[in-house]
Amino acid sequence: MADEMLSIRDLEVRVDDKPILQGVNLQVGAGEVHAIMGPNGSGKSTLAYLLAGHPGYQASRGEVRYRGEDLLSMSVEQRAAAGVFLAFQYPVEIPGVSNIQFLKSALNSLRKQRGEPELDAIEFLDSVKAKVRQMQMEEALLYRGVNEGFSGGEKKSNEVLQLLVLEPTLAILDETDSGLDIDALKRVAAGINAYRRADRSLVLVTHYQRLLDYIEPDFVHVLQGGRISRSGGPELARELEREGYVPATGAQAPFEIRETHGSAHPQGPPEGREGGDE
């Protein structure tokens, strides 16, 4: 078994008093790739935000350890300095702060918190430009406001660029593959693969097998009904792609109701959240 990177035990998260996560358990070892799938609204982004420390998401129960430390007691920036990175499902636009200035402030803050000296400006620029080329991004994006007016695909590439520049230890990528065209998906996947190392772990939140064709996961989990309802190997993702999400145990009712209405595809996932969490 690989060294432990992330350990989530019995995690409960409520938003506006509504339980979203209701007892999530997950172990991620160093060097491992975990894919988290699950229906819309099942709480995947909630889990990602909670791990990154978003002030709007607090654990009401449970424990999260990151490399043995109590992650939930750390501030957002401490988590970042300790090597936790979240690629946002919806990257934020920050007009007026140029992308390059942003990357530089971020990297230098991380280095400062770790007690490392600031980077030499020229070295920094050279290394960022090399990574921009690696991602096949336009260099001009470095000088625009952070994500300001970026296309959907450019925003996602920009998240991966940050991943490559900031070099975290645990990267949680929330639907970084959504909204990418076929070539962009390949480039983004190549960027993510370049980041991988035996001492770095990846948590990929995704809806599609096609990302996993490029980045083979060690484990695939289904988040449903507030819990990890199933876990398996890469074959689980292919099964889900074929058959959709099987309802969480004890929640057969919606399907029977559908059948009485004459649904031709009883196994198709209903819209929105599934039974079982209400």
Binding site: A52, G53, V76, E77, A80, L86, P91, A106, L107
Partner: peptide, 16 residues
């Protein structure tokens, strides 16, 4: 606040 969180998640302290 979302922009603040974004910056902090990249390592900037709240004041910066």
């Amino acid at each position: 606040s979302q922009a603040l969180f974004y910056l902090q998640s990249r390592g900037l302290d709240a004041d910066s």
